[in-house]
Write a protein that binds this DNA or RNA. Structure first.
Lengths: 126, 126
DNA sequence: CGGCATCCAGCATGATACTG
DNA sequence: CAGTATCATGCTGGATGCCG
């Protein structure tokens, strides 16, 4: 397989099409990078399945609307699995799918980097 | 070093504070995940320093405002270095700082994952 | 060429109330 | 408990024009 010179130096060789305006991966990327997605992925990556109310408490500051909306998007994209047990009161659990765990790993790495950097900056600032 | 049980199973142990509403890392994360940041990081990660006009062409669809705004944010956060040569016509080059390269690596991994997944989905869909 | 200032539209997000 | 529906808003992002 031939590799074009311009992308040879990158460990992740992105196809040029990614930079195109209407590339579907851009849309997908923006969905995954939306305000609350990383936080929910992180919340689910760390630990056991969580219920709606547990997620709401963990993702401090999220509104019910955004929780529902973000969970729905992650579920539609195949990153989150929703399991509802037909009891009263309702009992719903959210878990990561295998693909969701992959994604969460990458997102966690990014968050971890930011956290470390922010902590370091704070230390410098006193 | 002791690790709390709830975070022991994660390769990246995020401090609990990340989930707090006013956590500064959330703000930083959202800035880095803004619509155009990943694309510009990717554009600069792959290859030589780029000029304003080159970046504009590469990040297809970006407006001048968002290009300026995003570059400025990345520069303020220490991820991008701006070098202006005082000639006429002006000649300005943008490069990644060491921290920017770290960040770009993580972002590229994420983009690469999304791209692969999207391609796989497209293949299935025909 | 490489911006910045201004104005404007649309969507992401938010607050609140209601429901199965 | 686990959502949906509705209304409000604010900020991101876009179009245009001007400047060094």
């Amino acid at each position: 397989m031939e590799v074009s010179p311009s992308s040879a130096r990158l460990s992740f060789a992105l196809p040029e099409g990614v930079f195109t305006a209407n590339c579907p991966t851009r849309e997908q990327l923006n969905r995954v990078m939306s305000k609350w997605s990383p936080l929910l992925l992180a919340a689910l990556a760390d630990g056991p399945p969580l219920r709606w109310s547990e997620l709401r408490r963990k993702a401090s500051g999220i509104t019910e609307k955004m929780l529902a909306q973000t969970l729905r998007a992650l579920e539609d994209d195949g990153f989150v699995h929703r399991e509802a047990r037909p009891v009263v009161p309702p009992h719903v659990e959210y878990t990561l799918t295998p693909e969701g765990e992959q994604l969460a790993g990458l997102v966690l790495a990014l968050m971890s980097f930011i956290v470390d950097r922010t902590v370091a900056d704070d230390a410098k600032a006193g």
